[in-house]
């Protein structure tokens, strides 16, 4: 099979070219302050290619912060449903394997009996170009959940750094193959692999807990005091869930004038105080630790019951953004410890 390479400058040029096409949506890494965000590009966007990990995940390209799910006209004769804008083809560049792995994970949810064609159509139309990891930090734990710093799950093309200036492009899916063939001019250069380019192996990110043991503990310990202890400093914002590649909860709201309206699906979060509050005032999860327990239990237990997979890819984003000091890895490791104690 042919080998494909692409330089940084060619990649920038390719993404800019694609982003100038109004028929397409292109997402890439953009620097802001000390951090990088996966952002929607236009032809003028300045890309940043030198970063460890973006604050947000690539989730918002495929599951947008808000999107119209219904449009209607309000007429004196009654209500009339209107056309929704078509879903455009997408290119998403700049996530890591922990981002890409979340996309098929959420597919299970969005196709559970009722098919959410907004998510599924985007999934069909997206080309996900992922960067294999060359760096890690203390919050990374993908290997504990079956992931890998050079994992292919969910990607269409995986880029592995071979020189300071470029990557080798590995075709992962048919979509990826077609993408490279269509834009072959950008992938023609041959780059001789340089020495000293860091490569991250699975063993560089040690496995830190056993997720099946964690699940067993969660099943039996809903009322355990540990929950309150580990999550009492959570102040109930949604930063963790919004940067999370697998958190998928949403709200549905209407916005209308006298003549027309739109119904949108908007990100929402189980950590926010009003998420489960009934109209009567009753709130099944009224305390912040109860909401955080839901977040962890959903990922590490309930999701497995439904779809046979942990709903976490070990990217560590939630821990990095949380300034209240809630650290998911610490908590899951702690649960694993408790579980081991129980086994003895």
């Amino acid at each position: 099979m042919a080998e494909y390479y692409i330089t940084q400058s060619k990649m920038t040029a390719l993404l800019k070219e694609l982003a100038s096409d109004s028929g397409m949506e292109v997402f890439g890494p953009v620097k802001k302050g000390n951090d990088v965000f996966i952002s929607k590009m236009d032809g003028k966007t300045e890309l940043c290619l030198d970063y460890f990990i973006s604050v947000n995940s690539i989730k918002e390209a495929i599951f947008p912060r808000f999107e119209p799910i219904l449009k209607y006209k309000l007429r004196s004769e009654g209500v009339e449903l209107a056309e929704l804008p078509p879903i455009k083809p997408l290119v998403v560049f700049g996530g890591h394997p922990c981002d890409a792995a979340s996309i098929p994970l959420m597919k299970d949810l969005f196709s559970w009996d009722y098919k959410d064609h907004f998510y599924l159509q985007r999934l069909e139309k997206v080309v996900i170009i992922t960067l294999a990891c060359v760096e890690k930090d203390e919050n990374c734990f993908c290997t504990s959940l079956g992931g890998s710093p050079h994992g292919e799950t969910g990607s269409d093309i995986l880029l592995e750094r071979v020189s300071k200036d470029g990557w080798q492009a590995k075709i992962v899916s048919e979509k990826g193959k077609k993408f490279i063939e269509t834009h072959l001019d950008f992938f023609r250069d041959t780059i001789t692999p340089e020495k000293g380019i860091p490569k991250l192996q699975d063993k560089d990110i040690p496995v830190m807990f056993q997720s099946d043991r964690v699940k067993k503990w969660i099943e039996k310990n809903f009322d355990h005091p540990l929950w309150e202890e580990v999550a009492s400093n959570c102040w109930s914002c949604a930063a963790c869930t919004y940067v999370c590649p697998t958190c998928h909860c949403f709200d549905i709201t209407d916005d209308a004038t006298m003549w027309e309206g739109v119904r949108t699906k908007n990100w929402d979060a189980c950590t926010l105080p009003f998420f489960t509050k009934h109209a009567s005032g009753h709130n099944p999860r009224s305390q912040s630790y109860e909401r955080y327990r839901q977040r962890i239990s959903h990922k590490y237990s309930y999701y497995i019951d439904l779809f046979n997979h942990v709903s976490c890819t070990g990217c560590g984003r939630c821990s990095r953004v949380c300034k209240a000091g809630v650290n998911i890895l610490d908590i899951v490791k702690r649960i694993d410890e408790e579980s081991k104690k129980g086994e003895k």
């Binding site: 009722y114 959410d116 809903f222 909860c249 949403f250 929402d268 239990s297 309930y302 439904l306």
Partner: peptide, 20 residues
């Protein structure tokens, strides 16, 4: 009767444990 937004098993707020 828990608060619901989608009714389709997706919006993530009506669950009681793993029971949607």
């Amino acid at each position: 009767e828990n608060k619901m937004k989608c009714g389709l098993g997706k919006c993530g707020r009506c669950n009681v444990g793993n029971f949607y």
